[in-house]
Amino acid sequence: MNTTGTSPSGATDIDVLRVFCAGDGRYGNALGVVRDGRAYPDEASRQALAKELGFSETVFVDDPERGTVDIYTPGVRLPFAGHPLVGVAWLLDVEVVCPPAGEVWVRGDGEFTWIEARAGWAPPRTLRQYGSAAEVDALEVPEPGEWIYAWAWEEEAAGRIRARGFPGRGDGIDEDEATGAAALLLTAELGRALNIIQGRGSQMLTAPGPDGIIELGGRVRLERTLTV
Rank of each mutant, 00 (worst) to 15 (best):
Y130L: 15
G82A: 11
D211H: 15
R26A: 05
L222Q: 14
I196V: 08
G180K: 00
A44Q: 13
E177N: 09
A22N: 11
Y40P: 00
G87V: 06
Y27P: 03
D63V: 03
A11N: 09
D24V: 06
A50Y: 01
S132G: 04
A163M: 04
G131T: 10
N2F: 13
E116A: 05
G120P: 03
G75K: 02
D176A: 12
D211R: 13
D171V: 15
L49C: 05
G37L: 04
R18L: 08
V141T: 12
K51C: 14
S45G: 13
D13S: 12
S9A: 15
V34H: 00
G28F: 04
R200A: 11
T113D: 02
T227F: 09
A48T: 10
E65I: 15
N195I: 02
A182S: 10
L78M: 14
L205R: 09
A178V: 06
D176F: 07
D109L: 09
T179P: 02
I71Y: 03
L92M: 13
T4W: 10
I71L: 08
V88S: 01
R128K: 15
V228H: 07
T68L: 14
V97W: 03
I197S: 11
V33I: 06
G108L: 00
N29F: 08
L91M: 07
V106I: 09
G82C: 12
G201N: 03
G209A: 13
P210R: 14
P167T: 10
T225F: 08
D211I: 11
R224V: 06
E43V: 14
P41T: 07
G87R: 01
G110H: 11
T68M: 14
N195L: 05
G54P: 07
A133D: 04
W114K: 00
E57S: 01
I71Q: 01
R169W: 15
E65P: 09
T4C: 07
G25I: 13
G120D: 14
D93F: 02
T206I: 01
F60Q: 00
G32Y: 12
R125L: 07
G168V: 04
R128S: 13
R219W: 06
Q203A: 08
K51E: 13
A22T: 03
R35I: 08
G25M: 13
R160Y: 03
R18I: 03
V104S: 02
R128W: 12
V88E: 00
E143P: 02
G75P: 00
R128P: 07
G5E: 00
A188L: 10
G212C: 10
T12Y: 02
Q198H: 09
